[in-house]
């Protein structure tokens, strides 16, 4: 049932929720990767060296890898899920809560008191 009679005048076709679910999950996934890499950088010197290799001599350090890799994986996950679900009706609430859970874990991973506890 349309809860908004104002929309009737616009004659809009329904859209599948798959792409919307992709947008929600990928946002949480990107933040999760950011937090995970932030903590991994602290725990592993090898990981820190690899993350710093993304700075291309600009003096950014490991932040270059953490930010670039998390951004790339955000767009990659968005593209993959969007294509997979472009014509499907995915449960939007479930997708939101998955994204929210991943995002909260990611934020915890970026919190200094947390990730510094893993210092190698």
């Amino acid at each position: 049932m349309n809860q908004s009679p104002e929309l009737d005048a616009l004659n809009l076709a329904d859209k599948p929720d798959g792409p919307g679910a992709a947008m929600m999950i990928s946002a949480g996934f990107g933040v999760f990767v950011l937090g995970f890499l932030t903590t991994l950088n602290e725990a592993s010197k090898g990981a820190g060296t690899w993350l710093a290799s993304w700075q291309w001599g600009q003096g950014v350090g490991a932040l270059a890898g953490k930010s670039t890799v998390s951004s790339l994986l955000y767009f990659a996950s968005l593209a993959v899920l969007w294509v997979m679900w472009r014509n499907k009706d995915v449960d939007l609430k479930k997708a939101f809560y998955i994204g929210l859970g991943l995002g909260v874990l990611g934020v915890i991973g970026t919190f200094p008191t947390f990730f510094q506890a893993f210092a190698a």
Binding site: S67, Y74, V107
Partner: peptide
Amino acid sequence: EHIAWASPLLATS
């Protein structure tokens, strides 16, 4: 420096 990068991801979605 870390939390700031969550902002564009969330804003883009």
